[in-house]
Design a protein around this nucleic acid. Structure first.
Length: 588
RNA sequence: GGGAUCGUAGUUCAGUUGGAUAGAACACCAGCCUGUCGAGCUGGGGGUCGCGAGUUCGAGUCUCGUCGAUCCCGCCA
């Protein structure tokens, strides 16, 4: 191997005549008989190599055998390209290297797909050969942005006096929340560690220990089903602060996100971010993680619907409408498709399907078509005035159970935005969601469960309600949402052991059980616990937004499939009987 | 756990109403070619049609099951 003097993206006209050595992968070859062009590639760029039969016949002979993705080491002279042969598409396009020495370091077999084109293979295949997909331009860029982002995070938080402290991966299993990944103990047979769902308790203990500003970029593990934006192991930027309230956490988070966006993709986010209550988010956008890149709010239509003779509205608990300006282009066919979307979306498990969409158009001073005939002239005029309809407005409306209508109309809102091209990939709309309920009534188990986690503090003025009316209690939790993605979530924590115990009791954890599971934390709260709070960013999701992708797999070097398999190494896999014996485990 | 879409050369795809020897492009191999950058030209090799049943005279095509991929719901404190 010739030690490289330059990378493949480095040489310029100013290097003319230099004797250089390049190492890299064969990107393409163009064989012209007596002259062969080979593009050599590394992560910095591409340089054109030339092999000339007349001047270097021995090397030329070897070059004829080169094929895609061979790894080669070359030595040669930097030469200018003839006019008209300059490639403006690459940074090294004005020069080429005439090779005088070459070594083939590793010959590549015929490839399962083209590294030059990420779309040249199904994802299944790309995941099996992930190391090849990682050679593609896209993934090289995504990984680079991920790296820059983590550097930016570390720099910012360090500059703000946060300390990075590592916490254990092998910890105690706590059955609340997500399903744990378990790790059997060999030394203590029949006992298990759990991989952390997040370092929640540890970071609280660090606050009690006096590390008043902590952060960590850390892997978390949750054994739940996957999604386009969910992997079983993922990375958080975990942050905790002492002697703070919500405003301090918001300011720190906004400072962090603002700097990362500025440094990594040169976007000014503009802090402070707006806040929206959980309740308003659901009512207006049908979700607690709304995409504010476009408006199109869910409008309460029940007042008018109840005045109508339209049967489908009669027993509806919740009636919402969307008003689309310039809705002339929505033909019956398009409306039918949207109606079908509503039916299908609402029919998903656990929900009573909606019957579809009712529609009306505003034209020539009146509402016409669709269900307009079920509304009196008077009510129609009320609607027109209330919503300040202009010519061409289209109203889409549906009614049913609140917990069906809201998410469905929320999804329809996004569906329409997609169709309209309103989801500008260069636009970023962050907002805080606040005033979450502390608890949620679980119908099927008939118990209260926490919406965030059991260490979240209730709002001070609501503490009294805990015993009388738990559902009314608001928490001091908050989420940061950007473009429809929940990017971070956190809360001010409970630092009073009595309040903490009260919460445990409320969610059906008896005192003895609470002590068994969280005794160390409860006890720590009695030895001088400062008021504290924090937040955790979904780092992968943040990077997704930075690179502009909708798939979390794009920003993780070696991701799992939707069924939590690694197609590359074949994990999870069976293990030997000896391994199990040593752990004292017998398979059922 | 449920729903939807998909699975045909190494790869991306085409394949009619169920009908003859399953095609194309790229990749690979061989030959030709000195200014290409998706090089070009000529030729060649390459297929358990995901797997297993079933219907049928006949299945890439229809049915059922199964495995895998993707998206969504449940789930994800």
């Amino acid at each position: 191997m010739y030690k490289r003097t330059h990378t493949c993206g480095e040489l310029r006209l100013s290097d003319l005549g230099a004797n250089v050595a390049l190492n890299g992968w064969v990107s393409t070859t163009r064989d012209h008989g007596g002259l062969i062009f080979v593009d050599i590639r590394d992560r910095y760029g591409i340089t054109q190599l030339t092999f000339n039969e007349e001047t270097h016949p021995d090397i030329f002979k070897i070059a004829r055998k080169l094929s895609m993705e061979d790894v080669i080491s070359t030595q040669g002279e930097v030469r200018t390209r003839k006019k008209g042969a300059i490639n403006v598409a690459i940074s090294t396009g004005e020069i080429e290297v005439e090779v005088v020495e070459m070594e083939i370091l590793n010959e590549a077999k015929p490839l399962p797909f083209l590294v030059s084109d990420r779309n040249s293979a199904a994802e299944e295949l790309r995941l099996k050969y992930r190391y090849l997909e990682l050679r593609t331009k896209d993934l090289q860029r995504f990984m680079s942005i991920r790296h820059k982002a983590s550097q930016s995070v570390r720099n910012y938080l360090s500059s703000q006096n946060f300390m990075e402290i590592e916490t254990p991966f092998l910890m105690k299993s706590t059955p609340e929340g997500a399903r744990d990944y378990l790790v059997p103990s060999r030394i203590h047979k029949g006992r298990f560690y759990a991989l952390p769902q997040s370092p929640q308790q540890y970071k609280q203990l660090l606050m009690i220990a006096g590390f008043d500003r902590y952060f960590q970029i850390v892997k978390c593990f949750r054994d739940e089903d996957l999604r386009a934006n969910r992997q079983p192991e993922f990375t958080q930027i975990d942050i905790e602060m002492s002697f703070v309230d919500e405003t301090d956490v918001f300011a720190a988070s906004e400072g962090l996100v603002t700097q990362v966006f500025k440094e990594v993709i040169d976007v000014n986010l503009g802090a402070p971010f707006p806040t929206l209550s959980y309740e308003d988010a659901l009512e207006t956008y049908g979700t607690d993680s709304p995409d504010l890149r476009f408006d199109l709010p869910l409008i309460d239509f029940s007042v008018y619907a109840r005045e109508s003779d339209f049967r489908a509205f009669e027993s509806a608990e919740c009636i919402k409408a969307l008003v689309i300006e310039k809705g002339e282009g929505y033909s019956r066919k398009v409306i039918d498709q949207l109606s079908e979307f509503v039916k299908e979306y609402s029919a998903q498990e656990g929900k009573k399907a909606l019957e579809g969409l009712g529609w009306m158009r505003y034209k020539d001073g009146d509402l016409t078509g669709g269900i307009s005939k079920f509304f009196s002239q008077n009510v129609r005029q009320q609607i027109i005035e209330e919503f300040r309809l202009v010519d061409g407005c289209l109203i889409l409306t549906t009614g049913g159970m609140t917990n069906t209508v809201l998410p469905t109309m929320g999804a329809l809102r996004v569906e329409i935005a997609k169709g309209e091209g309103w989801l500008d990939s260069k636009s970023y709309k962050p907002l805080w969601i606040v005033d979450f309920p502390l608890l949620e009534w679980e119908e099927k188990d008939e118990i209260w469960t926490f919406l965030h986690h059991p260490f979240t503090a209730p709002r001070q003025e609501d503490v009294m309600l805990l015993e009388t009316n738990p559902g009314e209690v608001k928490s001091r939790a908050y989420d940061l949402v950007i473009n429809g993605y929940e990017v971070a979530g956190g809360s001010i924590r409970i630092h009073d052991p009595d309040v903490q115990m009260k919460i445990f009791n409320l969610i059906g954890i008896a005192e003895a059980e609470a002590k068994e599971k969280f005794g160390f934390l409860l006890e720590a709260l009695t030895y001088g616990a400062p008021p504290h709070g924090g937040i955790a960013f979904g780092y992968d999701r943040l990077v997704m937004i930075l690179v502009g992708t909708h798939q979390i797999r794009d920003v993780i070097a070696f991701p799992k499939t939707t069924s939590a398999l690694s197609l590359m190494d074949g994990s999870p896999s069976e293990v030997s009987k000896d391994q199990l014996d040593e752990l004292g485990i017998r398979l059922k």
